[in-house]
Amino acid sequence: MQIRKLKFTTHFLFLLLAITAFSSVNAQTIKSKFHLDNNLSLFGALTLNNQSVNDAGITAPLNYLYNTVNNNVFKPGYSGGFRYDGIYDQKHFYSVSVAINRVSAGTLYKNKYSQAPFVDDFTHFKADNQFTTLNVAAHYKMLLPVNDMRRYKFYAVAGPSLDYKISTISAEHLINGAGNRTYINGDLGAEFDNKGYYVLYAHYKLGTNLFSSSVPTTLNRFELGMSIKVKDLF
C-alpha cells in the first residue's frame, strides 16, 4: 500500500512539474528568440552501460550469491531526446539537451562476503540493473582545426549532465537508504557535423550519486548517436 502511495506521489509530482513548466511557456517567444527552427535537433543514441556498486554501508542481513549478481560488462541501452545547439558571443559553441535513457547496465560489486561453512561468496545488496532516466546536459563544444572547417566540423565536447531515475526502484534497491535517484555526470566526447545535415557523436559519461547514499554507485556510459535538425525532419 505504501509503495503504491509512493508511486502515486511520484506521478503526481511529475504531472505538476510538467503542467507548471508548460503553462508559463510562450512557445512563439522562445521559438523566435532562440531560433529553434535552425538549432533544435532530435537525437537518438545507442549506449553501453556499466555500474560499480559499493555495498559496505548495508546493514540489513541479506545475501545474494556473488556469481549470480556480479556481471562486470557493458550492456546495451538506448537514448533519445532533443538538443539545442547555440553560439555564445559569436565564438563559444554549446549544446543543451534533454533525453530519456533506457539503461541496462552490467554491475560490478566491489565487496565480497563469505559465511563459513558455506563456501559461496555473497553481496549484501542487489542493484537495479535496468532503469529509465531523464537526462539534462549542458556541453561546451570546442571547434577543432581539422579538415575543411566550413564544410565538416569536428568538436571536442565536455560538460556536466544530470540523470534522474524516473522508473520504479525495486524494494531491494531501497534497502538502508540506498535508493538514490539522481546522478551527476561528467561528460566528454567528440562530435562530427556534416555540413549541418546531421551530427554524429560519441560521448563518455562518468556519473556518481548526487546525494549521499549508503551504497555509492558509479555509472559509466558510452553513447554513440546521431542528431538531425528538427526542421529537416518535420
Binding site: 505504501q2 509512493l6 506521489t9 512539474l17 541479506l62 524494494a171 531491494e172 534497502i175 538502508n176 535517484r181
Partner: peptide, 30 residues
C-alpha cells in the same frame, strides 16, 4: 512568474528525489 514556475518545478523535483524506503521495506524484502 517564470521564477515562481522554476521554484515550484525545483521543489517538485526535490520532493520526488526525497522518496526513499518505507519502515517495512527491509522486512518485506526478507
Amino acid at each position: 512568474k517564470q521564477f515562481y514556475t522554476f521554484l515550484i518545478a525545483a521543489f517538485a523535483l526535490t520532493m520526488v528525489a526525497c522518496n526513499k524506503e518505507t519502515p517495512t521495506t527491509q522486512t518485506d524484502v526478507m
